[in-house]
Design a binder for these strands. Structure first.
Length: 422
RNA sequence: GGAGGGAUCGCAUAGUGGUCUAGUGCGCCCGCCUGCUAAGCGGGUCGGGGGGUAACCCCCGCAUGGGUUCGAAUCCCAUUCCCUCCGCCA
């Protein structure tokens, strides 16, 4: 949510910022509703002040009570009418404000779409092969650790079953990443619900605009999270954090659910794009001055996962047109998958500034007597599992169809190699 | 799913229609005093919104939403959450 005060004071700045994202925002209706709203508030406040005063007078038993009571009955009716009108305006205003995305940071390259993204660095060399590396779905023909048929039998297209070393690999990666982020990077591990109330989904920015991509239980109006970012945003919702509580650094493992309606027909082979996947998510709540530098740290924490697995990757700075709805600045990590010959997005780290904090009402106080202020929130995958596993399987495949487990993961995995099964 | 109890300022509590402009204690902040600390003394201490150049003024908020009333923390209705017990259950 954008600051209504900013829109009021500097609509041109907001308009241009959103235009850079490819969004033509209609700010006039917002400004119009806002000024109407303030007129109503003003009149209502004055009438309430008068009623309070007169009621006190009546209580003291002054003369002319009956006329005053008559008069106040009228005033009460007017107040009620004003309150109803005010409520309606506020709902309309909120509905409009909730559809505006965040304003990009100044150093975000301006561009229309992913073609204008900038590769800021690459790490590692893609391995050289003396055979033709296979895509993971072909590798899987002999490994048989991903069961697509039975996934579809259970739940339909874009669902899969992991078995044997496949399931074990995923579990090891989760635990290994959580250990790294908690023990070495200073994050606190949390485990959150996977179903959330509507307001929580709205707080992170997924509702109202992206209902299409979410699974929803109608009976209880609960929503399946597409990422733990949702619950980590809501975690401190409606809280006023005491001085000294920031920064807060969280890491959470969770399943993620996405309907992927917009990508129907794309990436249908393998496990690159699925309806349910697991992810380890990092999340920070920080003071506003810290958020830019914290984003760099967050990215580097995510990179560490790939470095230790010795996977070739690149860091991409997203341009204005490619930013996610709540993000002011984002980096993606893309890992090289030699089988499908593709850079796979395994992580996206964003500085959401005060956008989610406003929607979720997360504030802090600098000093004991200080005025409350919105925190800045950041999120970054650390990292998403299916694509990480694609990269691992494809990168470490051998000519005989086996896959060598990278050194760093062996203690957790308890094996050195995944071999084809009969 | 059933029965009962509860939700007031950071914490603890007072408050059962107008003197509540929500009191008191603890905690916290600022002073004073004092070798230091503690104690003591004095003052202050919530959030949101509106108006005003400002000093400041006003409105709203006692879980949430409605209702009754000139006036609601207080009365009525509904909902949510927490606790206890019963039933069911990984």
């Amino acid at each position: 949510m954008l600051d209504i005060d900013l829109i009021r004071r500097n609509p041109e700045l907001v308009r241009q910022a959103l235009r850079n994202r490819g969004e033509e925002a209609a700010l006039e209706p917002i400004l119009e509703l806002d000024s109407q709203r303030r007129l109503l508030i003003h009149e209502g406040d004055q009438l309430r002040a008068r009623r309070n005063e007169v009621s006190r007078e009546i209580g003291r038993g002054g003369e002319g009570k009956t006329t005053l009571i008559q008069e106040m009955r009228k005033v009460g009716e007017r107040i009620k009418a004003l309150e109803e009108a005010e409520k309606a305006l506020e709902e309309q205003l909120a509905a409009l404000l909730l559809t505006l995305p965040n304003i990009p940071r100044d150093d975000v390259p301006v561009g229309p779409d992913s073609s204008a993204n900038v590769v800021v660095r690459t790490w590692g060399e893609p391995r050289a092969y003396d055979f033709q590396p296979k895509a993971h779905w072909d590798l899987n023909e002999s490994l048989r650790i991903i069961d697509f048929q039975r996934g579809a039998k259970l739940s339909g297209a874009r669902f899969y079953v992991l078995r044997n070393a496949g399931a074990r690999l995923q579990r090891s990666l989760i635990s290994w990443m959580l250990d790294m982020h908690t023990r070495e990077h200073g994050y606190t591990e949390v485990y959150t619900p996977t179903l959330v109330r509507r307001e929580v989904m709205q707080g992170s920015g997924n509702l109202p605009k992206f209902a299409d991509n979410l699974y929803h239980d109608q009976e209880d109006d609960l929503w399946l999270i597409p990422t733990a970012e949702v619950t980590l945003t809501g975690l401190h919702g409606d809280e006023l954090l005491e001085p000294g509580s920031l920064p807060l650094n969280y890491v959470a493992y969770s399943p993620c659910f996405r309907r992927e309606k917009a990508a129907a027909g794309r990436d249908t082979r393998g496990i690159k794009r699925v309806h349910q996947f697991d992810k380890v998510e990092m999340y920070k709540l920080v003071e506003p001055e810290q958020s830019d530098q914290e984003l760099e740290r967050l990215v580097s924490n995510a990179e560490e996962v790939l470095r230790r697995l010795k996977l070739a990757y690149r860091v991409v700075r997203l341009c204005t047109g490619d930013l996610g709805f709540p993000s002011a600045k984002s980096y993606d990590l893309e890992v090289w998958a030699p089988g499908c010959q593709e850079w796979l997005e395994v992580s996206s780290s964003s500085n959401c500034t005060d956008f989610q904090a406003r929607r979720s009402n997360i504030r802090f106080r600098r000093e004991a007597r200080g005025a409350p202020q919105f925190v800045h929130t950041l999120n970054g995958s650390g990292v998403a599992l299916p694509r990480l596993m694609i990269a691992l399987l494809e990168t470490y495949q051998q000519a005989d169809g086996s896959v060598v487990i990278p050194e760093a993961l062996r203690p957790h995995m308890g094996m050195e190699k995944i071999s084809p099964t009969a």
